[in-house]
Nucleic acid binder design. Sequence first.
DNA 1: CGTTAGTTTGACCTGTATCAAAGCAGGTGG
DNA 2: CCACCTGCTTTGATACAGGTCAAACTAACG
Lengths: 269, 269
Amino acid sequence: MRSGEIARTEVVNLSQHDLSARDLVLRRLEALTGRPVEGLEDWTLLDGPRRKVDAAANVLCDGTHRADAAVIMAGVAADVRILPDGRRQILGLRLPGDIIQGEAHDRVAALTPMELADAQPLVRELSERGDLRSSLGRAWMAAMRAEQAMLRDQIVRLGRLSAYERLAHLMLEIHERLFHVGLATASSFHMPLRQEMIADLLGLSVVHVSRTTQQLKREHLVQTRGSYVTLLDRDRLMEVASYASRFAAPPPRLQPNRIAAERRSFYGG
Amino acid sequence: MRSGEIARTEVVNLSQHDLSARDLVLRRLEALTGRPVEGLEDWTLLDGPRRKVDAAANVLCDGTHRADAAVIMAGVAADVRILPDGRRQILGLRLPGDIIQGEAHDRVAALTPMELADAQPLVRELSERGDLRSSLGRAWMAAMRAEQAMLRDQIVRLGRLSAYERLAHLMLEIHERLFHVGLATASSFHMPLRQEMIADLLGLSVVHVSRTTQQLKREHLVQTRGSYVTLLDRDRLMEVASYASRFAAPPPRLQPNRIAAERRSFYGG
DNA sequence: CGTTAGTTTGACCTGTATCAAAGCAGGTGG
DNA sequence: CCACCTGCTTTGATACAGGTCAAACTAACG
């Protein structure tokens, strides 16, 4: 939380990385717990064949196939509930490193093209023979708690934040989550979501998402280029959205002059 | 789900029962899983001294004391998040039979006077030495999933339901949860919540909760007497609110003539 | 280029918030 | 037993955030 931290300058490909499924899961778990996680070392179960899924295809249908579980290697999915009259609400996003599983009542849908690694053996191992005292078992519980924390955040977003605040809050959440699996720089990330999806996530209309996004841009809090987003003033965004980090070690704060540098490198040329 | 089920006529005290902490927890777990739960038989750990808490006193403060855990024997508590500017959002209710624990970022507050039984030994046993394959372990997981399902419901309520629908949905949730721990008849229950709390739960203003409640009454969907609520037409409420049960065996449906009988017995004299 | 999917703009409408005042009920003390 | 608080709910008047509809704009793509 020190504000003098140095933004990492390491070059990252914001839409894809080259980690193995094991390393990706590990990276996420360690970011969540803030300590090394053991017990996944000789875990080859995750290195099976990868599945590619088209956008808009359901990844796991309506919870009847509770069976399969997968690690997201690339792409964005969402837990979606559809009401009888067609209204849709996205309960939460599923980003790379997350493990998805069917839930009764809801379905998991691919919002972008995706790449998945089979995680069934891992999940089965953990939930059936899993030892909660082990390093891995604890990390697993931490991940469940983190998932719950995100649901809670979503409740507050929908219940008590204005459209403007909701959008700011969402940007911060996505950025933070992507950052911790190596898919964001200190202030930029790739977010290939149509406004319709953001609307379903934030309980707003598409039109209003459009207007609100523009307001955030007008006020120089965020900037976009295609589907790349840059948070121009994360501190102020956090204040605006009453955002609190869910991670053991949140992304670094930028120093004022570094903000300028970042901005230049992405949008000036 | 058969609509011919007989409403149980057993007399219940809607604001309190006389179960032991063990039986109460058991009852809830069995309602959730729909099957008998073993492993709690000789569990005396729950039968320690009971603690009484006043309304408005915080039951467990802001997650710093992650330590203690308790079974709610009587009363209503809530997970609350308070934003820096004072806005409040209740994330979910905690009713008798629920086990409460502090969560980072949020606090658990008593909404009514409460009676608690210490559950720390049980929780520690389960989360540290717990065997997920055992009957109790599975029930435990089921309870966690149920808790998550309620958070998801809350998201949909706030994101996509109108005030009218939200209230209907909430009434159904509370009724169902109370019913399964023996604190509701087939259509009535005791709900000593001020409208301010309902407002914080549903993301509305107090004034609008008042107006909306009256609309539900005007349309003969619910009735109230003091803090006792009767659902006059649960089928229609479920339809209005797009409500789906989270329990293995949901409360019985009333036959038309039984509805009349219920109504008479509670409000006619 | 024309086509299509997505975003933006403008005009207008509505659900819910806000503010302020009035009603009500349960408890206390005279 | 009444008069008075005090805390909650209800009512009315008014304001605004965000929804809806329809048309114009943009950009990717064959």
